[in-house]
């Protein structure tokens, strides 16, 4: 790693102030950022750890019935604490990386990074979550802007993520054999006013909603409602681990499985 300064503020306000320095960068769980720094692919002047900010930790419910997850809450805690209220989200959190990664990695860090193979973006997008920052609230549909790209401004920190709870939902991940990230992951969420389907891992533009599947499932929430539906291979990621056609195929397979598993 290149040399950098380290700061660990205890309030959001202090963190925002600390991030005003040129080339300062927020450090949440660090499970993606630190390996990136080890490869010397980034050279922040300062890392501002968000791990000491009590107001960004923990899980609660708001008056709208949404589950509000502090952005610095590690995956393991989400897996344990929302299992009753939103089992699909808990299962997703409990399947990210490995146990040690889940003890450090955070929801805010994952969404801020928006890795095209990360799990959380699919949950946020399929749930119609609200990404709360130090400055504003951003709807998931506006938040994700392509691979590693988000609506966040420079120095803006995610402080909380609010999840509406669907009637039923499921996440199905097909792991890339080496990294165990999602080669493709599909999150299906059924709400009273319709079904949302978000796909991660597959597209060159990062997480996306599969509109045709949503329409079909909104009309009939059953796996066979998807029969005959497929995505074009165009725009899908193609690499050592799978062709674009394979990924497109997996999206359809996993969406059916998610519908079948939804609870």
């Amino acid at each position: 790693m290149y040399a950098f300064d380290f700061e660990k503020p205890s309030t959001i306000a202090e963190a925002v102030a600390a991030l005003k320095d040129e080339d300062a960068q927020a450090l949440s769980g660090g499970q993606t950022l630190l390996p990136t720094l080890k490869q010397r692919l980034a050279s922040p002047s300062k890392l501002v750890s968000l791990g000491g900010i009590a107001e960004m930790q923990g899980i609660c419910h708001n008056d709208a019935g949404q589950i509000c997850i502090g952005a610095a809450t590690p995956h393991a805690r989400v897996a344990a604490e929302v299992a009753g209220d939103y089992p699909a989200l808990a299962a997703l959190a409990g399947g990210i990386g490995d146990p040690a990664v889940r003890n450090r990695g955070t929801i805010g860090g994952s969404l801020a990074n928006n890795d095209p193979s990360a799990c959380y973006p699919s949950a946020a997008l399929a749930s119609g979550a609200v990404i709360v920052t130090n400055a504003r609230q951003i709807a998931a549909d506006e938040y994700f802007q392509g691979m590693f790209a988000t609506a966040l401004d420079e120095g803006e920190i995610i402080t909380e993520v609010r999840f509406p709870v669907p009637q039923s939902a499921a996440y199905v991940k097909f792991e890339q054999p080496a990294s165990r990230f999602a080669l493709v992951g599909v999150f299906v969420a059924r709400f009273a006013d319709g079904v949302r389907v978000a796909v991660t891992g597959a597209s060159e533009n990062g997480v996306f909603r599969w509109a045709e599947a949503e329409a079909a499932l909104s009309a009939n929430f059953a796996a066979d409602a998807l029969d005959g539906l497929s995505l074009p291979a165009d725009g899908m990621i193609a690499d050592l681990h799978g062709s674009a056609a394979y990924r497109a195929h997996l999206v359809a397979v996993l969406t059916k499985r998610a519908v079948a598993n939804a609870s």
Binding site: P177, A178, S179, R180, L240, H241
Partner: peptide
């Protein structure tokens, strides 16, 4: 089932870490 070191046509190693070289778990 899992492992394989791959190069592209320019001789760049495509499997240069455990992110792409699949170790049995």
């Amino acid at each position: 089932l899992l492992e394989g070191a791959a190069y592209d046509e320019n001789g760049q190693l495509l499997t240069g870490s455990y992110m792409d070289y699949a170790m049995p778990r």
